[in-house]
Structures are given as structure tokens and as C-alpha cells.
Computed example of a mutant assay.
Amino acid sequence: MERPAFFHRTYDEAMDLMVEARNYMRFIERRERIEAGATVGLRMSCEAMRVTSRLTQVMAWLLTQRAVHVGELSPEEALAESSRLSGAGVCLDESFTHDASLPSGLRSLMDRSYRLYVRVARLEEMMVRRVLH
């Protein structure tokens, strides 16, 4: 059974972004945070966690969709509150996306993870309308 077209592209994008974020945070972010000083460093840590939250939520949602597609979950089960995309309060906050005091690499991850989260939220909303209404 072939997965929906959106799945392959979105999954690949999310996975690539997760790997990029991991590498950035492992090899670059710590050094930049130390060089930035306490206030900016704290903001960097908070925003790195926000990127991680967005990507974790997106991957969990995509894996749930894969379970639906292979018959492990029904569409209704996948749309139960416990399986839905969550964390909107944290994930949709883009207050510091354009903060020039943050390193450009982190700002790029912030922007792309935000756009991916929003896109997945729209996909989920489309599914809710189709399946539950």
C-alpha cells in the first residue's frame, strides 16, 4: 500500500531537519551559546528547546500517520486527543525568530521548524474535517 504523497516529502524533510538540528546543537550551539553571554545564551537554549519540541511533535504525528497507513491504527484512533499534534503554545511562538542577537544557524532552524509544524498542523486539521465531520 502506497503512503500518501505528502508523507514521503514531509517525513524526509522532518528527518533531515532533525539531523541538522542535532548536529547544530551538538557541535555548534554550545560554543555559540558560551560566546554569546548569559542573556543571549539563555534565549538560545530556550529556542533550541523550542526547535526540538516542534520536531518531536511533528515526527510523533508522522509516525502515527504511518501507523494508520499500515493498518495499526484507525484514522479515528490517530485523531484521538492523545495522538494529535500538541504543544501549540510552545511550538507556535515565534517571538525570537528574527532576533538578530541569535546566531543565523539557530534562526534558520527556528524558522524552518516553525513552518514545518504549521504545515503539519494544517494537514492534521484537514484530516480532522475529513474523518470526524
Rank of each mutant, 00 (worst) to 15 (best):
H133F: 06
P103R: 02
L17H: 07
R3N: 00
Q57E: 15
T10Y: 04
D16C: 08
S83Q: 15
L63K: 15
R107P: 13
E76F: 07
M59C: 02
R54A: 01
C46H: 05
A78Q: 04
L102K: 01
R9F: 11
T64S: 13
L62W: 15
Y114D: 07
H98I: 06
L102T: 01
R107C: 08
G87P: 12
E20Y: 01
Y114I: 01
M25G: 08
A100G: 11
Y11F: 13
E13P: 00
R30K: 08
S86P: 00
E77F: 08
L42W: 11
M1L: 08
T10V: 14
V90N: 13
G37T: 10
L55F: 05
T39F: 08
D16Q: 07
A67C: 15
R26F: 05
R115A: 09
V40R: 05
E81V: 06
L132M: 11
M44A: 03
L106E: 06
L62A: 03
L42P: 00
H8M: 08
E81F: 06
G37Q: 09
R9K: 10
G105Q: 05
S108N: 13
H133I: 12
F27K: 02
R54F: 01
T52M: 09
T52N: 13
M44D: 06
Y117M: 08
L109K: 06
G87R: 09
P75H: 03
M1Q: 11
S53N: 10
E20G: 00
A60G: 03
A5C: 02
G87M: 08
V58R: 03
E72K: 10
H98P: 00
M126I: 14
A5M: 05
R129P: 08
L63Q: 15
S82E: 15
S45R: 09
F6W: 14
A67K: 15
E29C: 04
F6G: 02
A38C: 00
E29F: 04
S74M: 07
R122G: 05
C91D: 01
T64P: 07
R43E: 07
R31W: 04
R30M: 07
R66F: 12
R31T: 05
E20K: 12
P4G: 08
S83R: 15
H98F: 10
E72V: 14
I28A: 04
R54H: 03
A88D: 14
A38G: 02
L92E: 14
M25L: 04
E2A: 12
M1K: 13
D111H: 15
A5L: 12
H133S: 12
